[in-house]
């Protein structure tokens, strides 16, 4: 059942990604990307990352894509762009390069469970089963959490918060500074530029 859902949604996500890069209209691309984000939220649910699924829908499909759609409409580039003349004769090489990248990534992903790696992962799963389950306290570094695959995790978000606000507290705070700087930068960049007065009192237009 889980495999069926995975296969169906995987096909949908790949199809929506293809449609996104194939669409001439930026508005349709954005909507296909939203569909792709919803597919990823389904994958997060399948893997037991429920909170991340909610965040995926709320932040990506909600906030980021709304911002993007807003800019698309603001710039009035929603009409289909003319045929891509970019790269010209080198265009097939771009496709070939992308296919090489695809082949490499798929090969690496398919080799993940291969025998040399199987020992390492087997040791990890042994460590998972050897540790006691579901402790509400803060797990120290590299301590596996409870086996949450398919299990009903009531404390999942709680455990995530416990790790986020203890071991990753400093990166969390740095993220807040990053977001503040991003807000300031976006505001300064996107506001209407008035005529600036330089030191000598001469009005100059800064482009």
């Amino acid at each position: 059942m889980e495999l069926l859902v995975f296969l169906g949604v995987a096909a949908l996500s790949v199809a929506s990604a293809l449609m996104m890069i194939a669409q001439r209209n930026a508005m349709y691309s954005a909507l296909f990307l939203v569909l792709n984000f919803f597919c990823l939220a389904v994958f997060y649910v399948l893997m037991g990352a429920y909170f991340l699924a909610v965040v995926q829908v709320a932040v990506y499909a909600g906030a980021i894509m709304v911002l993007m759609l807003f800019v698309i409409m603001l710039l009035n580039v929603a009409q289909p762009e003319p045929s891509d003349r970019r790269l010209g004769v080198f265009r097939p090489f771009g496709v070939i390069a992308a296919f090489i990248l695809l082949a490499e990534l798929v090969a690496v992903g398919a080799r993940y469970g291969a025998p040399p790696e199987a020992q390492a992962t087997g040791a990890t799963t042994a460590a998972v089963t050897a540790t006691p389950l579901a402790r509400p306290t803060i797990p120290p570094a590299a301590t596996p959490i409870a086996d949450h695959v398919g299990a009903a995790d009531v404390g999942h978000t709680q455990q995530l918060a416990a790790v986020l606000f203890s071991r990753y507290l400093f990166p969390f705070e740095v993220t807040s500074v990053l977001l503040l700087v991003a807000i300031l930068g976006a505001t300064i960049l996107a506001r209407k530029r008035p005529e600036y007065e330089d030191v000598a009192g001469v009005s100059v237009r800064i482009k």
Partner: peptide, 11 residues
């Protein structure tokens, strides 16, 4: 999941 991730990244 890794293969799917690779496909999406390549796209």
């Amino acid at each position: 999941y890794l293969i799917l991730s690779g496909i999406l990244f390549a796209l």
